[in-house]
């Protein structure tokens, strides 16, 4: 469970996140909607202690993320926008293993996690392929596998569909459905809600760093123009 309480984050003069409070339960599928610059990315980076709050707290499973970053980062898996810039290994296997290695797990457990994570995104047995030789869709799946290998309770995806063609988007969505069915909570940050509304339990609308609404998808749909997000057809 992620609990955000009165979170404020400023960059110099700009307030990116302004007194935000919200809760995300285990197993939920939540969409964080908002236009560019609404503070979505800044907000979710607090979920695993990649940023420190100027005010307020973020608790992951009851523990303040800023005090226990390792606990937050193993409970909240993060998939970044444009995964190409977030890979830390040259090959699929090396990249996915990086997180589990940092957790100090033994080699058998690392191998098991990498194999399981790759199987979860249909990339089993492709450990030695170079990441640069993969398509955008495959790279997106490797990025998901890398987060899944930490065996998190929550999976946060920041604009996961940018630059992906329709089959690749569909494939990513299907893998997210699988993770959700396996009990993970899924948090998707996006300004493009096609295919997301009918999956989500809740839509949280963000505008200028503040939560404008937190509603079930049907009710949220009508209020999307209010936060400058185009309602899906």
């Amino acid at each position: 469970m992620i609990t955000v309480d009165g979170l404020t984050h400023t960059f110099g003069e700009t307030t990116a996140v302004d007194d935000v409070s919200l809760t995300i339960d285990d197993g939920e599928w939540v969409v964080l909607a908002g236009p560019n610059g609404s503070g979505k990315t800044t907000l979710v980076r607090h979920f695993n202690a990649l940023l420190e709050p100027d005010a307020g707290t973020v608790r992951v499973n009851g523990t303040p993320a800023a005090d226990q970053p390792v606990a937050a980062r193993t409970s909240v898996g993060m998939v970044f926008q444009s995964p190409r810039d977030g890979f830390v290994g040259a090959t699929i296997g090396a990249d996915v293993a990086f997180g589990p290695e940092n957790l100090g797990l033994d080699h058998d457990e690392i191998d098991r996690r990498v194999d399981d994570a790759l199987a979860a995104v249909n990339l089993e047995g492709r450990h030695d392929e170079r990441i640069d030789s993969l398509s955008g869709g495959e790279q997106a799946r490797v990025a998901i596998a890398a987060a899944v290998a930490m065996e998190p309770d929550h999976l946060v995806l920041d604009e996961p569909f940018t630059g992906l063609d329709w089959p690749a988007q569909r494939s990513v969505l299907e893998h997210l459905d699988d993770r959700h069915a396996a009990g993970m909570s899924i948090i998707v940050v996006s300004h493009e809600l096609r295919d997301l509304l009918d999956r989500a339990d809740r839509v949280i609308g963000l505008h200028a760093g503040s939560v404008r609404f937190d509603l079930p998808p049907d009710a949220a749909r009508d209020r999307l123009p209010e936060i400058d997000v185009r309602p899906p057809p």
Binding site: T63, Q68, V70, A71, T74, S75, N102, L103, E151
Partner: peptide
């Protein structure tokens, strides 16, 4: 992951 397992991880 339980907290006791993560305590030994020395983050950079």
């Amino acid at each position: 992951m339980a907290r006791e397992e993560t305590a030994s991880i020395d983050l950079v």
